[in-house]
Amino acid sequence: MSSVTDRALGPPPVWRRLIGRQETAAFICLVALLVFFSLTADNFFSTRNFTNVLGQASLTLIAGIGCAVVFISGEVDISIGSLLATVALPLIVIMNDTNSLLLGVAGAMAVGLAVGVINGFLSAYLGINSLIVTLGMMFTLRGGVYLYTGQRAIADDAGLDSFIALSDGRLFDVLPYSAVIAIILLGVFVYVLRFRRFGRQIYAVGGNREVARLAGYDVRRVKFTCFVISSLLATCSGIILAARVGSAQHIAGLNFEFQVVAATVLGGVSLSGGIGSLGGMTLGVLILQFLSNGLRGLSLPTEWQLVITGAIIIAAVALDELKRRRAHGD
């Protein structure tokens, strides 16, 4: 009862609003992690290491934007890991043929777009459970890559400077270009989610599908577009990954989708839709990236990261569920 009267008196103070949010918890978690590894791991606390981690995190960050957008719209996309490996094929093959980065990227984007359209059509318009659709897509794409490559890497023979710069180039010799791309894309999508009607429609559709429909939104088109965005962003990650390994690898991006999902959920983006922010997702990505970086610094097996990530997914969803139940009072 007292809580009701509190609410009636006006909005809670800022600090209390912050405390209720998962982003705050994620932030505290990240700081604690940084302090812990700075004290225990060798060579952890340095500009070089931090910018390295940012560069490594850029893949997850870029794909994470798409993952968060799809989550906020109330759907799931776990085909992005396989997509990473898939888009590298047209990229490398076309570059080897034409010596043009632009054509290669265009080819990769076209494939990414097609996958996004298929995912979106099957989930949003035909209404098949998106987890099943993208799970099926995940295996179809991976199998397709195995088929095409014969489980051998296709090397980048063109060796274009602009392509190599994607992996080891640094802006002002400090920040890796991949991190720069991630930050720009992050900025664009923070703007879209906050300042474009389309962005608000994503939140509304995920928050309450029926209300969104009553407000005149085209629910299916919004969801469809989110799948396309997710695939295109994953394509960007795939291009950067291909540059980093200098080839199209059939095992590229294996389990990548689960890392992205874990980071996104960890950052407070709700699986049930309508809740979450790209800031939170970014915190989630950084936590996991620093975790694996730090574990390596402590010379612990990196498989711990997989175990911890799995546990985090379960814990984050369970907490989310608990919060929802509290709010609904049952």
Partner: peptide
């Protein structure tokens, strides 16, 4: 008990098992 959607929850245990078996 934790009321996690089984599709997501078992993806979580899948990752833990995948990592765990290598450990």
């Amino acid at each position: 008990l934790l009321r996690v959607n089984s599709l997501i929850g078992t993806i979580g245990t899948m990752m833990m098992l995948q990592g765990g078996v290598y450990l």
